[in-house]
């Protein structure tokens, strides 16, 4: 029996919406972040390359799983569960 992978909501920043036909929020599935990104790239070709470089998250891309930066919870190996949400944002200077 095939194990079903959760489909989750992903918030897309303005700068990447050219790949999603202008959609702010899309869905993709996978049991790890790497699988979700691969599925995202299947549904919206070109997206994978904008997010990854040499198999890692690009330096100026931040991905938050339920508001937590994935770099501190396994990066591309972070585990995805049903009901999770992902937010993708470019790294920008904070207020100070």
């Amino acid at each position: 029996m095939a194990v079903s992978t959760p489909e989750i909501d992903i918030r897309i920043p303005t700068i990447l919406r050219t790949y999603t036909g202008g959609e702010k929020s899309v869905q993709a599935s996978g049991s790890t972040l790497a699988e979700v990104v691969a599925d995202l790239d299947r549904r919206f070709p070109g997206m994978g390359e904008r997010l990854l470089e040499e198999g890692k998250l690009r330096r100026f891309i931040n991905v938050y799983l339920n508001d937590e930066d994935v770099r501190f919870i396994g990066s591309l190996d972070a585990l995805i569960s049903s009901g999770d949400n992902l937010t993708i944002l470019p790294a920008v200077a904070g207020g100070s």
Partner: peptide
């Protein structure tokens, strides 16, 4: 606020050293 011209115009402060922090929330 995230209206960059392209992703490569992103910014990470030179002071930032990821190894100092243990969790990061948005």
């Amino acid at each position: 606020v995230y209206g960059l011209r392209n992703i490569d115009a992103g910014f990470i402060p030179e002071l930032y050293d990821e190894s100092v922090i243990t969790r990061r929330f948005s």
